[in-house]
Design a protein around this nucleic acid. Structure first.
Lengths: 132, 132
DNA sequence: TTTTTAACTTGCAATTTGAAAGTAATATCA
DNA sequence: TGATATTACTTTCAAATTGCAAGTTAAAAA
């Protein structure tokens, strides 16, 4: 590949990533679906950060369009949708954990890292589901 | 520590982190100061993403207030300021690299990862400076 | 002394967010 | 069966943030 075509092609991978999830809400929704195994609209709404329903709706739709999560109808209740993480979504786990590790070591409020325990179980089931 | 006080204290470390750098511009500025060793206002302005000067000004000030970067006067040119990464700022390197790695492996445009080479040199000098 | 440069700051339109209320399609209860 | 509740949105609108262009101030260079 020539130097020129490489220069044209290459955009910063950090910038590329941030275009997809470089805002607060997207990563929090991904946290909930990956680390906490949430699957329903109301579950995402109930997290501590209190995301507004219009923003949540928008982010779930985008994450679905971009392939980070799968959106299905609940066969046993037609009002509900089931959100689940895909392989692509799971590939963001290292990013999330790195951010969590940084936050935990700099917060001073986080104490005994309550998410550490919670995490391992939920991640395991997220992985099991995504790879099925 | 009681269960109650722990529950009151513990906020999600991911949420904590995102409150500090959960937007596109903050991490791009940190990328430039950590991975590309930029030190001047004009250098940050010249990156591909073309950050507006008011936003850049705001982000540099915040990063300074939060201790991620140090801001000094240039002794040899009183018009200029010198921005440099601190130890605290450097502690975000793993987060940045994880995001970069994800972007590189999912972009399809990034080609031969031109930042890999560039990175190692700049990171080394960032580290050297921050720890001095 | 005039021109340039560096780092902002300001003004303003456009976009995004956030809070609250509304809606449509079910599902559940009496 | 009819009334009520639930779920996942959508809408409305004010407030905050962003993005662009132009202006400002102090200091350096010509």
């Amino acid at each position: 590949m020539s130097t020129l075509s490489r220069r044209e092609k290459s955009k910063c991978p950090i910038s590329y990533s941030l275009d997809l999830f470089g805002d607060k809400w997207t990563l929090l929704v991904l946290r909930d679906v990956i680390l906490h195994g949430k699957t329903r609209f109301a579950e995402f709404q109930s997290s501590d950060e209190k995301i507004a329903s219009n923003i949540l709706s928008d982010r779930l739709r985008r994450l679905g369009e971009q392939g980070f999560i799968a959106i299905e109808k609940d066969p046993s209740d037609a009002r509900q949708k089931i959100y689940s993480v895909t392989k692509k979504g799971l590939s963001l786990t290292p990013v999330l954990l790195e951010i969590a590790a940084w936050g935990a070591s700099h917060d001073g409020q986080t104490g005994e890292l309550p998410h550490t325990v919670e995490r391992s179980d939920s991640v395991c089931s997220s992985i099991t589901n995504a790879l099925r």
